[in-house]
Design a binder for these strands. Sequence first.
DNA 1: CGGATTTATATAGACTCTAAATTTAGATTC
DNA 2: GAATCTAAATTTAGAGTCTATATAAATCCG
Lengths: 401, 401
Amino acid sequence: MATTPAATPPMLRRVNAGKLLSVLSTAGVMTGTGLIEATGLTRATVHAVCNDLIAMGWVVELDPGHDAPGTPVGRPSRRFEFNSQAGYVLGIDVGAAKTTVLLSDLRGETVAKTGRSFQSVKTPAEQTQVVNEAVLEVLAAADVTDSEVLAAGVGVAAPVDREGNILVDDEFWRRFDAGLTTRLTELHGWPVLLENDANLATLGEHWRGEARDVDDLVVLLAGERFGSGLMDSGRLLHGSRGGAGEMVYLKLVEGVGDTAGIARTAREQGAKAVADPTVKTSLRELAGSDPVTAELVFAAADAGDKVALGILQYVACRTARVLATLGILFNPELIVIGGAVAAAAESLLPSIRQQLATYTATPPRIAVSSLGDTIVSVGAVRRALNYVEQHALDLQLSSAR
Amino acid sequence: MATTPAATPPMLRRVNAGKLLSVLSTAGVMTGTGLIEATGLTRATVHAVCNDLIAMGWVVELDPGHDAPGTPVGRPSRRFEFNSQAGYVLGIDVGAAKTTVLLSDLRGETVAKTGRSFQSVKTPAEQTQVVNEAVLEVLAAADVTDSEVLAAGVGVAAPVDREGNILVDDEFWRRFDAGLTTRLTELHGWPVLLENDANLATLGEHWRGEARDVDDLVVLLAGERFGSGLMDSGRLLHGSRGGAGEMVYLKLVEGVGDTAGIARTAREQGAKAVADPTVKTSLRELAGSDPVTAELVFAAADAGDKVALGILQYVACRTARVLATLGILFNPELIVIGGAVAAAAESLLPSIRQQLATYTATPPRIAVSSLGDTIVSVGAVRRALNYVEQHALDLQLSSAR
DNA sequence: CGGATTTATATAGACTCTAAATTTAGATTC
DNA sequence: GAATCTAAATTTAGAGTCTATATAAATCCG
């Protein structure tokens, strides 16, 4: 009948141990006294908990030494350090065209990184195969075994609900392998945490990107298609079926009309201009017989091509309108623009900001991501680390004595 | 240094007492055994906590009796009941044109209700005066003293952040008295909890309206202006400055263009039709020399007036587009339409649902509020009750022995 | 080498919970 | 009407947690 178990004395230890571990995992080497100050616990408790954590393998004890080097008086402190090699986590971005895989230690430092194109992939099973190859590569590169990996975060370009279930009737399914997560668990025995890519991008920016210390946040993935991750008070939104942040509403927004992102709009507009013989543009010569790319449009604009500049103005206008709707409706402190074209988007920022101000008197700050093509995989690492931190005291570490 | 205090043994009691109180406050009379099942605690603990709660005044003990009437064997149980008269809370809706005030017991049952028009109000101070008169009226009607009121929730049509601070540069301020909350605290000594009206409407629908058991929810206030409250996984969104749910983005939505709600659109379109001599409509005779009202347009449409029917079609189209943007971007399970015209909106539902389906393949459920003009004040009561439940074990009850 | 200083460790006390034994209040049975 | 049965209340013992205080240890300094 009881919804939550009763609160018992051992739970106190659990809470305090979790707190101590969380302090240790973010700080560096800490002395007993330092932990007392950081946690509010008594010295006796701090040491008891630390002894437990050492026995479990989460913490390592260094040689005793003094905290402040200036006044080396008194008995030297015991010194504790979070054992960032107690295990590893994987962050996997399964994109439309490629996959990016990060292997990270428990402090979030990247240990190995790789990527694979999906160019030759024809069936979902092949996709899983390619992802797994990339995973095996990073494990081998860092000499990490299956049992040392404590969790894997996986990002996909489809709605994913809070339980990690993917929305079945999504077009992404044409390519994506439904069995990926279960297959990874089968092969390696890891907990696999599936999440929407834009949501992971938001976790990534919040953790290691432009949005540190920003708890009311929107991240706009703006490459091929617009996608958004929404965070309110430090929590990701999901909606009832994982669809929160879905951008199909843009077909109702004047001057936007569809979910085509910056790269796609630039490319399509460029191709249109090239195809029209009455338009005079250097894009035609630059492209030659190859199809026009977004990069080409940005380059031409840089070189002063009027048509390319016009296209970028149009892109900036669309983006400003997208940012305006999100900024007004969610009232984030900051919106971060990420995705393949984030770097190029930098040059559009002044124009975007200026137009944004015409839609709202209190616009959010706008920034461009500096995480590049790891924006999703970094977030996937964070997702996996969240899981590990939550379950730390239940996990059996292979390094535990 | 410590961000949160250390977990100590007395906190266990606090947690368990809180849980027991929360079970008791929602259930009716409970026996010791029933509480054991509901909380997972031991009999010894249940009784110890109950004795504490009785001493504090939160719980009353009834004469012992048997739980199941069929088999009255064994020693009769002690029977406990949440003392819903241990205190009271106020729910206050400060609207643009009027205020609604509810006095409720701790179980959320309305004890007294009243309202006041702001028609004669000219200054902010007068507004506070009118609100306070209404408050005094409900207190007198239920014979409740200041010290028995444990909290007051107040809803206003302006952005309010998580700390209860109102956004200063809002047009609502022309009428609203900034000093209302501090004045109420000064006069009566209550904690006053300020919150945005649409957010409170969302709490209200979630608690006592159409959205019970729905944790991913949007409530659209659709009277004079569109306003929305957003709930994800049972939590209200606020954004960084309380602006979450703000609808100014509608000026960017095709076929909507501004935040005018159902009532205002119907009224204005009606007036426009009447003013145009080339338009043939029964509205002209119905209105006579008075200005056209939304009610009049609805009535004329009911009677078959073509122009009025056309206006309603336009209103339904606008509303469907608003619902589509919210439904797609937040993916709520349900959107509830509330506000002054909620009842009339019922007739538009089929048309709205049909159009909504053209914008998204997975539309949310749409419902119309049945809370009428108490939608905000009921939510304000819930807000106040949340506060009381959170602080229950710290509060000094005047009824405590 | 002894005093000062800081930290570590050990001990005692308070508070909480659970678990098991004992008592109690009423109904049932003989 | 006394013995019996039953379910709940109460009591008691035990284990886990924390804090607070006392004692021991390790290092520096003169």
